[in-house]
Design a protein around this nucleic acid. Structure first.
Lengths: 266, 266
DNA sequence: CGTCTGTGTTCGACAATGCTGAACAATGGT
DNA sequence: ACCATTGTTCAGCATTGTCGAACACAGACG
């Protein structure tokens, strides 16, 4: 663990979350570092294009280089590449917006966003993040993690985004169990009021759940009784297809690859 | 200049350009570093989520963290925030796709992409990069830089993307001069065959050209004689409006802030 | 089936490296 | 005009990262 690099990364993270512009002193206070230390790190990061300094105020913010890197990540993401075609097909089939996501720390990040064919104007949500416990995409992934990893995630308190967000570890565990049983997860206005989602996990060649894929949209439309069954079937089928493209064998798909007694999938 | 951080940044850059997945030995060879050095840096970057290692092959690639950072950059970009509304208005007015861009090193990076209202399916180009000399967006910005900065950019050889790309420094200088005279730049199939663009610079409160804004699309449609004049006027007006929103006074807009005798804009 | 080159990884020692303290210049507010 | 605060610079000390050689493991080949 190289500390100067780790500190630089923490600075980037700090610049990325919360205030979009920070001063040297402010960063030093937040990370408990001396002013000159932060200064040196910032200067280096600036020369690499990862941060930029406002010449007028002297404050620092993220630089354009990080966007280039983010784009390169998307371009190189195998999950994204393999799921784009099938996500487009799913969106056309069910006429809903489709998201493909990855779990990073305790949040789910959207790596691909296929628009709902009918809607003219929608905002692109690639790069957006949602707490894992408040969305179907997150539950679909976490339901396939090992007990230890789930425990680790549930150790932190669960933030409530809406009145319907599950914040009790027990309630979340129950949701994970049913998601694991059914093979897909359902979310009903737990992240945004009015919005819901249905998502299924995507496995790679080793059987690990590397991400998830699902539909998002108005809860009344997606979660109506008859829509729900056809949607969930289509979502699961698409996720299976992507998993197959990633090299997952059919046998590995139920997520039995991790230590600990797995819940039975069917 | 902290070398370990600089090296980490070079690693990220290397992972971002070219092969999406690299091995320790390969990185070491490219950056002329010892294997253990690269390994330590990669481990640290991995723990920060900026790179991730494929457990099967052991090779490394960019991690999801960089996408989060890239998104945070977009969220915090003042140019982007201030230009979104006006870009949408321009797109509606002229019925063309609108790009907002920033100059980073010797390439132009798209920080906002407003779709052409009529087209149903288009791909989002945010984060895409184009060499500055091969697009109107780049010429619009560079035309407002100081002589020294232009010289620096022209020192490197200019890559040809199409048969129409200007690669002779003299030709580019001439294009910059006319762009400066008119207040906007025109590109005709210099980056992609069939595509053209019209762009104007955006200034901040200090009078510096912090980016540019323009329309892109099929060259025959955009650059037809009658379309060209109305488009260029609309683009320039929108760019002026954004500049005003960023705090640029009218007097500063012609780009008089830099050394050297500026050409009159009107 | 053994060998062998290649990979990513670990260990330890040297010294180069980056960190911290205090002092400086410049800005903005009062 | 003062003061407080900012970002920045400069030194010396010791921590810290670097490098060479050796390790475990994989796949390729004879």
């Amino acid at each position: 663990m190289i500390q100067s690099v780790a500190r630089a990364a923490r600075i980037l993270h700090e610049l990325g979350s919360g205030s979009p512009t920070l001063g040297v002193t402010e960063i030093g206070a937040r990370l408990d570092l001396a002013k000159p230390t932060v200064h040196g790190l910032l200067r280096t990061l600036e020369q690499c294009g990862l941060v930029s300094q406002d010449v007028a105020t002297g404050r620092y913010s993220l630089g354009p280089g990080v966007l280039q890197l983010g784009n390169a990540y998307l371009a190189g993401s195998e999950l994204r590449a393999r799921s784009m075609l099938r996500a487009a097909g799913l969106a056309r089939q069910v006429n809903e917006a489709v998201w493909v996501s990855v779990l990073v720390d305790d949040t789910v990040m959207v790596v691909h966003h296929e628009f709902r064919p009918d809607d003219a104007v929608q905002i692109l949500e690639v790069g957006a993040t949602v707490p894992w416990h408040a969305c179907a995409l997150g539950n679909a992934i976490v339901a396939n993690l090992s007990e230890a990893e789930v425990d680790g995630l549930l150790a932190h308190p669960l933030r409530a985004l809406t009145g319907r967000t599950r914040t009790q570890p027990e309630a979340v565990r129950k949701a994970l169990a049913t998601a694991q049983d059914r093979g897909f997860a359902i979310e009903n206005q737990e992240a945004n009021v009015g919005d819901g989602g249905i998502a299924a996990p995507v496995y790679d060649h080793s059987g690990r759940a590397v991400g998830s894929l699902g539909v998002v949209g108005p809860a009344e439309r997606l979660l109506a009784r008859q829509a729900r069954t056809s949607l969930s079937r289509a979502v699961v089928e698409t996720a299976r297809a992507v998993s197959r493209d990633l090299g997952a064998s059919r046998a590995k798909q139920p997520g039995l690859s991790h230590a600990g007694p797995p819940r039975r999938a069917d």
